[in-house]
Simulated scan of single mutants.
Amino acid sequence: MTDQAAVVIGASGGIGSAMVEALKASGLYATVHALSRSGTGLDLTDEASVAEAARQVGEGPPPSLIFVATGVLHHGQEPERAYKAMTAEHLLRDYQVNTVGPALVARHFLPLLPRDRRAVFAALSARVGSIGDNRLGGWHSYRASKAALNMILKNLSIELARTHPQAVVAGLHPGTVDTALSVPFQKGVAADKLFTADYSASRLLAVLDGLTPADSGGIFAWDGARIPE
């Protein structure tokens, strides 16, 4: 299948860069588009930038995999442990990056997917975005923005099924990965539960390989388990 292409959004991050290398090593893709703010100038907070990136990718073979590996958790604002810590600035920042950004990627990149074969649109989500699995509370902005992302993915799966019957849309929980995003929260994580980015990327690709259109719209953990909505 040397005519296939893949797209990784957020390719400069820990999981994103590992995903790029894993896709290249697989030999399944003639082209792996590695897109990021630092590498190619793709800015998910700027829709014109997203549209231009999609236009450039569209000049080549249709991508059969679009993987959104972007996200923000702390980066100047610690996750809120109580409702009194919530601010409009924090909420809007997390929604902008974790929800609106992937939604804009979908708007401009989904039209590139082939209709006559299997195609996948996946985005990094998080177990804490599950409403049904929420037992601890807190982390209001991050949880809410990931829950909103999960709803976007569900909506996309319903709409895309009408035109792309072999397509799969999925959210992925990568586990606790040793990246800058998780460093402040690694205390107490068992050594065998703190993954390298390479291991997480390989597991996520294995999960995606096993999904069918019947699974589209679901959120799945690194081990393949479906996460409650």
Rank of each mutant, 00 (worst) to 15 (best):
P174M: 09
G224R: 14
I227F: 00
T31C: 02
R143I: 02
A221G: 14
G175I: 03
L160H: 11
A148V: 08
V100K: 01
P63K: 04
T163D: 15
V7F: 07
W222E: 10
R81H: 11
V120G: 01
K84V: 03
K154I: 03
V50S: 00
S26M: 13
A161V: 04
S49D: 05
A5I: 02
L113C: 13
A25C: 10
L92Q: 13
L153G: 00
T87G: 01
N134Y: 05
Y95F: 15
S12C: 07
S26F: 14
F220C: 06
V177A: 08
L156P: 00
L113W: 10
V57C: 01
D94Q: 15
A22Q: 13
A180L: 11
G39R: 14
A126T: 11
R37N: 05
D3T: 14
L65A: 05
T163A: 15
G10R: 02
L112K: 12
W139N: 11
V7D: 04
V68W: 02
S157G: 14
L112H: 10
I227V: 12
V169F: 07
S216K: 07
A48W: 03
A206R: 15
A126M: 07
H74M: 03
P111N: 11
S145V: 11
E78L: 01
A88T: 10
S157N: 14
L113N: 06
E59D: 13
G218H: 12
A103Y: 01
F195N: 08
G129E: 03
D43Q: 02
A197E: 05
R37D: 08
P102C: 02
S157I: 12
L73C: 01
L65V: 09
V32A: 07
D209P: 06
Q186F: 06
S200H: 06
P114N: 10
S17N: 05
A82M: 02
F195V: 05
A170V: 12
D178F: 04
F195M: 14
H140A: 13
P114K: 04
L92V: 07
P79K: 04
D192W: 01
A144I: 14
T163N: 12
I15C: 11
R135E: 15
S125M: 08
E59N: 11
A103T: 10
R115A: 15
A54W: 04
S26A: 03
M151V: 11
Q4P: 02
K146T: 12
M86G: 01
T87H: 00
A54V: 03
V68D: 12
A5H: 03
D192E: 14
I227G: 00
D94S: 15
D223Y: 07
T176L: 06
A201F: 06
H90D: 11
G41V: 00
A22L: 09
A123H: 02
G76K: 03
K84A: 06
S141Q: 00
L208K: 08
A22I: 09
M1W: 09
A88M: 08
A6R: 04
S182E: 09
L172K: 06
T176K: 10
G188H: 09
I227A: 01
T40H: 02
H108C: 02
A144K: 05
G101M: 04
A180I: 06
K193V: 01
A34Y: 00
